[in-house]
Amino acid sequence: MTSKSKNILVTACALGALSVMIGAFGSHGLKPLLMENGRLDTFEIGVKYQFYHTMALLAVGIIHTKWDIKLLSYAAYSIFIGTIIFSGSLYILCITNTPILGAITPFGGVLLILGWILFLLGIMKIKKAVS
Score class of each variant (00 low, 15 high):
residue 1 M to E: 12
residue 2 T to P: 00
residue 2 T to E: 09
residue 2 T to Q: 10
residue 5 S to V: 01
residue 8 I to H: 00
residue 10 V to C: 06
residue 10 V to Q: 00
residue 12 A to I: 01
residue 13 C to A: 12
residue 13 C to D: 10
residue 14 A to R: 01
residue 14 A to G: 02
residue 15 L to A: 07
residue 15 L to P: 04
residue 18 L to W: 06
residue 19 S to D: 05
residue 21 M to N: 12
residue 22 I to Q: 07
residue 22 I to S: 02
residue 23 G to W: 06
residue 25 F to H: 13
residue 26 G to I: 03
residue 27 S to G: 13
residue 28 H to C: 08
residue 28 H to T: 05
residue 30 L to E: 06
residue 34 L to M: 11
residue 34 L to D: 13
residue 35 M to L: 15
residue 36 E to I: 09
residue 36 E to K: 10
residue 36 E to R: 08
residue 37 N to H: 13
residue 37 N to Q: 13
residue 37 N to C: 13
residue 37 N to G: 09
residue 38 G to K: 01
residue 39 R to F: 11
residue 40 L to Y: 12
residue 44 E to S: 10
residue 46 G to V: 07
residue 47 V to P: 02
residue 49 Y to E: 02
residue 49 Y to V: 02
residue 49 Y to I: 03
residue 50 Q to C: 05
residue 51 F to G: 08
residue 54 T to W: 01
residue 55 M to N: 10
residue 60 V to G: 06
residue 62 I to H: 07
residue 62 I to E: 02
residue 63 I to P: 08
residue 64 H to S: 10
residue 65 T to H: 10
residue 67 W to S: 15
residue 69 I to K: 01
residue 72 L to T: 05
residue 75 A to K: 00
residue 78 S to E: 02
residue 80 F to L: 14
residue 83 T to M: 03
residue 84 I to S: 10
residue 85 I to V: 15
residue 86 F to K: 05
residue 86 F to C: 11
residue 90 L to V: 07
residue 91 Y to W: 05
residue 91 Y to E: 02
residue 91 Y to P: 07
residue 91 Y to A: 10
residue 92 I to F: 14
residue 93 L to H: 09
residue 94 C to G: 09
residue 96 T to P: 14
residue 98 T to F: 15
residue 102 G to Y: 08
residue 102 G to N: 04
residue 104 I to K: 01
residue 104 I to H: 04
residue 104 I to F: 11
residue 105 T to N: 04
residue 107 F to T: 02
residue 109 G to T: 06
residue 109 G to I: 01
residue 109 G to Y: 06
residue 111 L to R: 04
residue 111 L to A: 08
residue 112 L to W: 09
residue 112 L to C: 06
residue 112 L to A: 04
residue 112 L to Y: 08
residue 114 L to H: 04
residue 114 L to E: 09
residue 114 L to P: 02
residue 114 L to G: 03
residue 116 W to D: 09
residue 117 I to W: 02
residue 117 I to D: 03
residue 119 F to Y: 10
residue 120 L to I: 15
residue 124 M to S: 14
residue 127 K to A: 15
residue 128 K to Y: 12
residue 128 K to A: 13
residue 129 A to D: 12
residue 129 A to H: 14
